[in-house]
Amino acid sequence: MDLRQLEYFVAVAEERNFTRAAARVHISQSGVSAQIRQLERELGAELFDRSARTATLTVAGQAALDHARSALAAARAVGQAVGEVTGLLRGRLRVGMVIGCTVAPLFDALAAFHRAHPGVELSLQEDGSDRLVAAVRAGTLDLALVGTAHATPEGLAGLTVVSERLVVAVPADHPLARARRVTLRDLIRHPIVCLPPGTGLRTLLDDVCTAQRLQPTIALQASAADAVADLAARGLGVAVLSASMAASHRERLTARVIEDVRAPALLALVWREPHGPAVRAALAHSHRAFGREAGGAGGADTPHGAKPADADRG
């Protein structure tokens, strides 16, 4: 067996789907399947139950998964150790970001990192925040830009790059646009258009409703903030967005802060500790790109150059 086979095996195990795993490792599905079959022949046991649409680990696959992850981590550690001695970074930096994200400072940071460390292969994948956080925890991503309802997801280190209030966005003739004050209880009297479960902003909305024992009516869901705003502008529901998301649609929608929701919607870079030299270098470039000193935790102000309105906080 080789490390490539183990990488494909871990990808399929975590994605539970050969097609998604192939997209993640950037080869064809047939290539992933062939390598997994070869690994199974070498081990003398099937690793996946392929009888259903979802690729489920067999007992043998479950026994192999942790060891495969450890082997991949050990291989990365070898490259990192040599890189620290020679001063030349090599290997791979795997970055994730929320779907629909165009936060320019992240792209600036990656470009600067690539110029400084051309020997490191960069990969970038989009997904929902909950899946990205899980991938960072599992070690299949090194760094991810995620939307979150908490400053740092449990078990990870983080840098908050955007922190904003939750708002309701409605057409100018909507009753909430003319209200003197909008509360969460006012909001839930109307059908809501928002991001789907698993996104940071939706988690925040669900948490604050649960805390007040309120049951919102989610009329429509969309995975991008622009789609949420478009649906609300057409009168299909009341949009729940962050302040900057709503601001980019001010010509069509009136944004009102939800007064009794004090917890902010956050956009954060997250990573595991301890981390290697590639992640450390990427974080240094990220701190500079987002206009913060290295080691800062992030505050309530939008960092210079960030365009959170274009991110879905997914």
Rank of each mutant, 00 (worst) to 15 (best):
G295A: 03
P277V: 05
V95T: 07
L201A: 08
A71R: 11
H67F: 02
P118G: 13
A294Q: 09
R137Y: 05
R165L: 15
V208T: 09
I99C: 07
D312A: 15
S123N: 10
H285R: 04
G276V: 12
E126A: 15
V167Y: 00
P303G: 15
D142Y: 01
G237T: 01
T58V: 10
P308H: 12
G100T: 08
P274Y: 01
A157S: 14
A284I: 06
D260C: 05
G61M: 15
S30N: 13
L132W: 00
A144I: 07
L141G: 03
I218Y: 10
S242A: 12
L88H: 15
R50K: 04
G100E: 07
S163W: 06
V182W: 04
S242E: 11
I218R: 08
E40L: 02
L106H: 01
R185W: 07
D142I: 03
T54L: 13
T160M: 14
L93W: 02
H304N: 02
P175K: 02
L93C: 08
R213K: 15
L65C: 13
A157Q: 11
R292A: 14
L231A: 12
L124P: 14
H150K: 06
R24T: 15
S28Y: 13
R4H: 02
A289S: 13
L269M: 11
R189V: 05
L143K: 04
A104L: 07
V85M: 03
C101A: 13
P171I: 08
D127V: 04
L214Y: 06
A281G: 04
Y8T: 01
L204S: 00
A300M: 10
Q35K: 03
G128S: 09
E251A: 15
H285E: 14
A45R: 02
G235E: 01
R252D: 06
R262V: 13
G44K: 04
A60C: 08
L159C: 11
P303D: 15
A284K: 08
L43Q: 12
D173M: 03
L57E: 10
V85G: 00
E46N: 02
A34M: 06
L3E: 07
S51P: 06
W271Q: 07
L166M: 09
A246E: 11
